[in-house]
Design a protein around this nucleic acid. Sequence first.
DNA 1: GTCTGTCTCGGGCAAATTGCCCGAGATTTC
DNA 2: GAAATCTCGGGCAATTTGCCCGAGACAGAC
Lengths: 213, 213
Amino acid sequence: MKEYSVIIVDDHPVVREGYRRLIDLQPGLKIVGEAEDARSAYAQFRDLQPDVVVMDVTLPGASGVEAVRHIRQYDDSARIVVFTMHLSAAFALKAIKAGATSYITKSSDPKTLIEAIFGALHGRTVISPDVIEAIARDRISGMGTGLSDLSPRQTEILCLLARGWPAERIAEELAISQKTVRNNHYQIKSILGMETDAQLVWFALETGLLQAV
Amino acid sequence: MKEYSVIIVDDHPVVREGYRRLIDLQPGLKIVGEAEDARSAYAQFRDLQPDVVVMDVTLPGASGVEAVRHIRQYDDSARIVVFTMHLSAAFALKAIKAGATSYITKSSDPKTLIEAIFGALHGRTVISPDVIEAIARDRISGMGTGLSDLSPRQTEILCLLARGWPAERIAEELAISQKTVRNNHYQIKSILGMETDAQLVWFALETGLLQAV
DNA sequence: GTCTGTCTCGGGCAAATTGCCCGAGATTTC
DNA sequence: GAAATCTCGGGCAATTTGCCCGAGACAGAC
């Protein structure tokens, strides 16, 4: 029986132990490497050429979605199973668009993860049921994730606004006038259909633009 | 050698596997039960009377801090190690005040967790270095968590504001005038020293007043 | 009893911001 | 090279904020 190689990427050591217990003891799978951030994930992939990568998308430093994109750029046939806490339609869509093969939440049954890994080996995409439901709900209630309706600049400004930066500081940071920041602020709220600034924060959080501490 | 009993509480199955690998294989410790939410954590504690509880504080449904309080109410000598992703001074202080013996973040070295468990058996409190630092930083920059500086009513209004409710809806909900809501809004911001509404959301999140999805 | 403190609720008003519309360069896309 | 899209900001009325004030309620202190 062929044994497939796996590398795991997660920033929490205890979670990596969990993967080992789950994946390594599975006949047919073998963990050949571990990484705890996006950069070393990429390095490990290049060095070890594993059959599958299992990774969280919330990592210290660069976003895991970036890591997915990066790895797929290097090797278009890479199989990447995203395994994360975030039950967010927007997050999932971003990951899939970036090139993830599957998207599974950590509250799923461990069996689901194993199935997703074997599925990925055969190029099958698995998305856990809770995420499917979230995506469906999202599609019904609105148009897409909403994030895609914003221009890059608007996304950038939203990011700063949601962090709690005052218009003044944003204007400095981006070297534009406060007036422009305010205009964008207004535009962003009306595009996303939000009434208050607090809602913007929640949006940024749900969408994965920002991460809760 | 006496073997101490442990129950683990976490809503992610894979993380629970990680605990098993870490704790169960440790000579002197044995996992006798698992729970995935606050209610069953309490039930398990009553049924199994373990020597230590290792639990995350962000659980589906009721907050883990409540679970800590509940368990300590039932058995004042219970040893509870909080093991969580949240690197937040306010969160840690709340957990400790609720009766947690130790507070360790998931990005800590696994050894730290084991040490905290054995420490807890002897009644020692262990707080991981990153949290200590966060608390120190907090104490220096402000006075306490800040939440205690707000009146009950202000806390209530903050809660609604941080959820993203417009002043109008808050006024309705609380049956007061919009003007009063606005005055409180201003007061809250100046008491807490915040400049923007987005910062209020982060404050509510860090302080445990609200929980991120 | 009265006094003092704190909380809640809101009025008032100048200063600042929002909501909304507009136009001009720069870039992209076809 | 025409059309579409971004980005940047001006303008201006309507609203909100920042800040100060007073009144009624209710606690505990003396």
